[in-house]
Amino acid sequence: MVQYEVLTDIGKKRTVNEDSAAVYTHPDGIILAIIADGMGGHQGGDYASSTAIKIIGDMFLKLDSSEFVIKEHWFEWLKEAFIHVNQLLFDYANENEELKGMGTTLEAALIHGHSCLVTHVGDSRVYAINTNGVSQVTRDHSYVNALLDSGEITEEEAAIHPQRNWILKAVGSEKHIEPDLHSLDLDDETYLLICTDGLSNKVGKASMQQIILSDRKTLHEKAQTLIDLANQKGGEDNISVILLGPASEVNTP
């Protein structure tokens, strides 16, 4: 997994882009991909998402290579990074009245060879995509998912539920946070898609798979096609995509 594309779009209805996305490459070749969808007003949402990504990216680039020898250390580092950012944002919001209530979703994927560790808070998503299908790695921390888990609504009802965008957990919005941790193996045929809900609310799994597995598009074109499709279907929210492809993926026209 060495090829990647990062794209973010304001969408068709918003006046400010509160999403942030970045990919960092450590000198030892380890990749950290991060995406965030801020909330709490224009000023607060933008600050929360961009600050979270910058802080974690800076922490990652300063790591000694010995930190990556044992996989358990990866999880420990990712979790502590999320907790650190959460505390900083929470404290800053409490010190600045205009930023009270701000927070951000946060997805981070740490990739070394075929190993991938994912840390997750909120309702942005990580998908693994290959010819076998589309697997959603993360599970939304949302009101609708809580209803699904309790059996109160069906998958079909969840898709159109009026509160489907209500999230129950965000970085910076509460004093303590416990991120979800996931581990997966990425073979040479699998793509990793990290996106905000501006994409996942508009583009279904079948369309994702068709676009991403197309051999007629570069990695950039695939990511752009996903964003274009979300905009064609309304584009009510900011749309951000990180698409990571196999080493054989061509990324230039």
Rank of each mutant, 00 (worst) to 15 (best):
G113C: 07
E67I: 06
G133N: 12
G40H: 13
Y47W: 13
Q87S: 11
T104H: 04
V134F: 12
A81K: 07
A128K: 15
M102W: 06
V137A: 02
T104Q: 11
R125I: 01
L61I: 10
Y24W: 11
D140W: 04
S66C: 04
F60N: 04
L63S: 07
Y143D: 02
A128D: 08
W74S: 06
G38W: 09
Y143L: 12
A22T: 09
V85P: 00
I34E: 10
F68N: 08
V118W: 07
Y92L: 07
F82Q: 00
T131D: 12
I70M: 08
G44F: 07
V23T: 15
L110T: 08
D46T: 11
L78C: 11
Y24G: 09
N86K: 04
V121M: 10
H112S: 13
V137R: 02
A81D: 05
A22I: 01
G122F: 02
M102C: 04
V134S: 06
D64P: 01
L99K: 15
H112I: 05
A93F: 13
G41V: 10
A93D: 02
I83D: 05
E97H: 12
W77G: 01
E95N: 11
I31Y: 02
N86E: 04
S135C: 10
Y47V: 13
W77S: 05
G45A: 03
F60D: 02
